[in-house]
Design a protein around this nucleic acid. Structure first.
Lengths: 250, 250
DNA sequence: TCAAGATGATTTGTCAGACAAGTCTTGACA
DNA sequence: TGTCAAGACTTGTCTGACAAATCATCTTGA
């Protein structure tokens, strides 16, 4: 076959290649990587392109570069189930080694109201689609989620709505609606299960849960999804990798 | 004055300059930035250096670059008190507009034990310094923290120990011990106040708290600090910015 | 013998200039 | 009025070069 049409910037491709090399243990933790000219030659790119990829990996905390010394792989404990990498409940459950599923799922349409209206940048009487789901890990209900989507984003096709309640919202956004979620802002707090939540998750009222609210934005910064999630406290452990203040202050 | 000795890579300096420009609203949200050659000239660096800084800001989700079109500032809601930016309780309280303080603070030395030993990569009978503090916001106790540091990192000077209990650990690490914290891995879960915690924070037993455990690493990936924090649930809201799966999958 | 300083090879940081590839605007044309 | 082509503009990448910092080695002196 001929040369594949490429649209992804080479620097991104290089970044991904290096990531997989690191993941497969090609470089040893704490040890030096091959010098840039050598790596660039092997990857078939210029040093400038390689350096953009390295900068990216350095920002992610995977390696450090020191002028005159070299580029070193940082030995960092691999964290599963962390908020940085996993996007969406389905993936989180799967990466914990459990089987994701649904116990109940509903969709309905209503007016946004003042709160969701403000969050999603809508008028109070604009319509939203509300997806209401009880999600299970290995058959046990562990998360109750309510997702709110501006109605004008979703074509009113029954098949699509049916898909909404079954699959990963992020996949549907990307594949069906052509919306790429760029980033999300999550806030969370400990809470006790209210009567509604307790009923849904089959636990006593007052059980410990982690309430997480997240707003997702597309590439232009437009809010496209508002999610409310009630996680059973003993079912998951949440993690996040925090970039240090390091990088030497001015 | 003469040229200051510079050690920070120019690309980092450019990144910080651009950050401050963005923060001050020099570029409008969603609009295009000046073309790279122009920006580079204004900043007094080459395009390659500028591009490394831009790549960094793109990774942080602040802007997007499209070949042929330009570089665009993303309009993203400014989040205070988020886990990505704030490192340490002192700073978090301060950035919430409150006055940080201490109600009680103790330091003692003991053997690491098996648990902390493993976390900090020590033998069970290696010594650790334990800093035990009740922290207040505007005078009200809101966080109970226990910090564990390998003893060999801390010179046994009384003045230093006294400082440990009063100031920001991160500042002391950097300024007194010469250790730059590079990143931390935090895990958290909702919990109820045990008797100890309840006493310290002056709340009834069983009160809702967020328990957060974090291990901080230096630039070489060596663990240097293990922190246990019990946050009063109603005192703070935790936030984290999550990078989307976006970036277009292969 | 050992410690301190000088030397040179190695490696990242930065620059300059050039061209390719993609996007967007403008204007000609049917 | 709608369609298409040309051209200006902008990011993506390459080549080659030099500066600056680190590290290992060797020399020198006590």
């Amino acid at each position: 076959m001929g040369a594949a049409a490429r649209q992804r910037p080479r620097a991104d491709a290089v970044r991904i290649t290096l990531l997989s090399w690191i993941g497969r243990g090609r470089f040893r933790q704490g040890r030096r990587l091959p010098p840039e000219p050598e790596l660039a030659a092997e990857l078939g790119v210029s040093r400038a392109t390689l350096r953009e990829a390295l900068r990216s990996l350095e920002d992610e905390g995977l390696l450090t570069r020191t002028r005159g010394a070299g580029t070193f792989l940082i030995g960092r404990p691999r964290v599963k189930n962390n908020l940085d990498a996993n996007f969406g409940v389905t993936e989180a459950i799967r990466s914990a080694g459990m089987r994701p599923g649904f116990e109940e799922a509903h969709v309905h349409r209503r007016a946004a109201g003042p709160e969701e209206g403000e969050r999603l940048d809508l008028a109070v009487d604009d319509d939203v689609i509300v997806v209401d789901r009880i999600r299970t890990a290995d058959g046990r209900p562990v998360v109750y989620t309510v997702d709110v989507i501006p109605a004008f984003l979703v074509p009113d096709r029954l098949a699509l709505l049916r898909r909404l309640v079954r699959g990963s919202l992020y996949e549907i956004f990307e594949q069906q609606l052509g919306i790429v979620i760029h980033h999300g802002v999550a806030s969370f707090a400990p809470a006790r299960a209210t009567r509604t939540v307790a009923d849904k998750l089959h636990v006593p009222r007052g059980t410990l849960v982690l309430y997480l609210h997240q707003i997702d934005y597309d590439e232009t910064g437009r809010p496209v999804l508002s999610s409310h999630e009630h996680h059973l406290a003993d079912a998951f452990e949440f993690m996040v990798i925090r970039r240090g203040p390091g990088r030497r202050l001015a």
